[in-house]
Structures are given as structure tokens and as C-alpha cells.
Write a protein that binds this DNA or RNA. Sequence first.
DNA 1: AAATCGTACAACCGCTATAGT
DNA 2: CACTATAGCGGTTGTACGATT
Length: 234
Amino acid sequence: MGRRPCCDNSGLKRGPWTAEEDQKLISFILNNGIHRWRLVPKLAGLMRCGKSCRLRWTNYLRPDLKRGAISEEEENQIIQLHSSLGNRWSKIASHFPGRTDNEIKNHWNTRIKKKLELLRVDPATHQLIINQQPERYDHGHADARPQAEGKSTDVSEDEFGLMHSSIWMPSDRSSNEEETIPQVKSSGSCSSSFCASSMASALDTEETKLCYDSFPPWEAMYPFEDLVLHGSLL
DNA sequence: AAATCGTACAACCGCTATAGT
DNA sequence: CACTATAGCGGTTGTACGATT
């Protein structure tokens, strides 16, 4: 008949924690330590289930938590770890003392994922999205403009064209090469890596400036060799 | 000023892993 | 070995709040 629920929900409080509840939980744990979460709410005088108490403690009340915004450096590291570990948030979080898996997962889902999508990198595979328009750009029109968080952008027709042509596609490609893999030109500082700077300059709009200002160097994130190995440029 | 929309994040749900009996 | 209890994990939802209309 399956597992019993972690707790009997009848009569138990749910939803946001109050300062009073927080205080009760903190003082109980500091005085008694953590032994059995199931017993914690009873002993601490809380109308919560043990699971809720554990989550509240680990994600919010733990004294060793590092509160505050996730830095660019941390974000960079998260992306790298995600590319090798996938959605194993607890593993990723273990590299960031004071950060919780929930915090990193939320940050990934609300910010990093969107930035990657904006730059046409599949957040799941970390490969370039080359054969389709990103869904969030496509509002039913083939030439839908990139939009950030529902706001219209300053990306002009030409800039948008650049985004889809000169950055990824060889300038002299024929029309039936539309669905083929872009070539990465081997010149200058972009010789062996995905040239983020040229892409950034092509997308030199307020929105993309904001994006790049808080985004790690792409050369480091997605080196050309990796893209080839993962099949993006094959 | 009010209504609506979008975002960020806390919290919950359900499943799996592991320890204990 | 089988079963149960508990902790941990990842996906998803709910909601507060700021921005926009």
C-alpha cells in the first residue's frame, strides 16, 4: 500500500514560516541538536511536520548559510558543474559552502537557464541550439525578436540578423545550408574557441549588455573543442 | 491609483536511498 | 532477507513583491 506519509498532515500548519516559528526551531536545535526530524516539531512545540522543519532549517535557518546574491564567479562555477553533473543540485551545492541545493536550483531555473536560452545554449545539454529558434523568441512569428522577461528589446532587424547569421553561419552559406552546423571562423583571438566577444558586440544592446555584464566568459565556458566533442559543431 | 503581469524564491510533494530492526 | 522509518533529493507550485500598463 505504499509508504506512509512522512507525517500526518491533519492539523499541521503549512505555508510560510513566522518569525516565532523560526525562533522556536532555532532555539530547539541549538539546544538539542538534530536527532530525529520527526520528533523535532513535537519537542519544539511547532505545528509543522518534521520534513517541513528540516527544510526550513537546511534552506533558511542554518547559521552557516551564506545569504546574499550569487556572484558571477559562483554562477560561472555552477554552469561548469552543471555541465558535468547535470541536475544533481546537492552535488553542485556541495562545492559552495553556505549555499543550499534549493538556492542553486532556484538560481539556475530563474536566471542562468534564461541567460543560456537567450544565447541559444541548451541549458540541459550545454550545446548550442542551432537547428531551431529558441521557443521563448518564437511567439508564433518566424522573425520573432528575442525578448527578455516579456520586455521588448532594442535588438534591431540588423542586429537580430547578425545573431542568426554572421555569428553562427558562414557569411557565404547557401540557403539550403540553413539547417547545417555553423562554422567557427579561425581567426585572431577566436582561433580555437567560441568567440563570445564578437557575439557580444553583435548583440550590443542594452539588454544584452545587461546580460553579458553578469555573465561569465564564454570562451571559458564553451571552448570550441568541447563543442566539437559534444557534437554541436559536427 | 488600481489592475495586471512577471520574477524570484520559499515551501511542498513525491520519489529514492539508506539505516535500523 | 524483508520490511519500515527516516533523510535526502529534485521537480514543481504558491505567493510576495516590484514593474508595467
